[in-house]
Simulated assay, not measured.
Amino acid sequence: MPDLVPFTEVTSLFDDFEHTAWRLESRRSYDSDRQTEEYRAFFKGQPVEEDLTDPYYVARRQQADEGKRFERVRVVDQPPTEGQRYLLHRARFNIAAGEDIRHLTRTTAERIGLPEQDFWLFDSRVLIIMHFDESDRMLGVERTEDPARVVEACQIRDAAWHHAVRHADFHPGG
């Protein structure tokens, strides 16, 4: 396994990127989501709202206003897993903050050869590969600017983006 650092060591990239922050989300679930009260409330059928004045959302809106793009493609099973249903619900908050979120069915992702590896790509030059254990708990991240790995991530991004469907038009079925 590569040398991993805590995710907190790369969070400055979310403020410092110049043009694009792009994410591939391929996991069926995230332990960090399951640990939240919001997650539990959502599955109890309770109303779940987000404070869009939270600094995270304010920063995303400001970046969008500056012309920066914050994008992600989520791979979704058919039918969606519990974790994916939660993320489909949460997408509206990220979109309200200026993100462009698109989705791919897992069948399409497999057909076009996408990896089952979550990552962030900043300005097509910095790659943050996220590592998880079998319980969907993040172990840490690997940061690289290796040109070959960055180019590969750019190709993955381009293929995923080409085939992905905007959130508003996505109907996961099942």
Rank of each mutant, 00 (worst) to 15 (best):
N94R: 02
N94K: 01
N94L: 08
N94F: 10
A96N: 11
A97S: 13
E99L: 12
D100P: 00
D100K: 03
I101H: 10
I101N: 14
I101K: 04
R102N: 05
R102W: 01
R102S: 09
R102A: 05
R102L: 06
L104C: 03
L104M: 06
L104Q: 01
L104A: 07
T105H: 07
T105L: 02
R106K: 15
T108Q: 06
T108F: 00
T108I: 10
A109S: 13
A109Q: 04
A109Y: 04
A109H: 01
E110T: 11
E110C: 04
I112L: 06
I112A: 06
I112W: 01
G113Y: 09
L114D: 14
E116S: 14
E116K: 14
Q117M: 11
Q117A: 14
D118K: 13
D118L: 11
D118Y: 08
D118M: 10
W120I: 05
W120Y: 15
W120R: 04
W120D: 14
L121C: 05
F122V: 05
F122I: 11
F122A: 06
F122C: 08
D123K: 00
D123I: 00
D123T: 00
S124N: 15
S124V: 01
R125G: 14
V126P: 09
L127G: 11
L127W: 02
L127I: 09
L127H: 07
I128M: 09
I128N: 05
I128G: 05
I129C: 12
M130S: 11
M130P: 03
M130H: 04
H131Y: 12
F132P: 13
F132N: 12
D133P: 13
D133C: 08
D133W: 10
S135E: 15
D136C: 07
R137S: 12
M138Q: 14
L139Y: 09
L139I: 10
V141K: 05
V141T: 08
V141A: 03
V141W: 06
E142Y: 12
T144I: 07
E145F: 01
E145A: 11
E145Y: 01
P147C: 04
P147H: 07
A148G: 13
R149D: 02
R149G: 01
R149V: 01
V150P: 03
V151G: 06
E152S: 15
A153I: 01
A153L: 02
A153N: 04
C154T: 12
C154D: 13
C154H: 05
Q155V: 01
I156F: 02
R157G: 03
R157A: 05
D158L: 04
D158Q: 13
A159R: 15
A159T: 14
A160E: 09
A160W: 01
W161N: 03
H162S: 13
H162Q: 13
H162E: 12
H163E: 10
H163W: 06
H163S: 08
R166D: 07
R166N: 09
D169V: 01
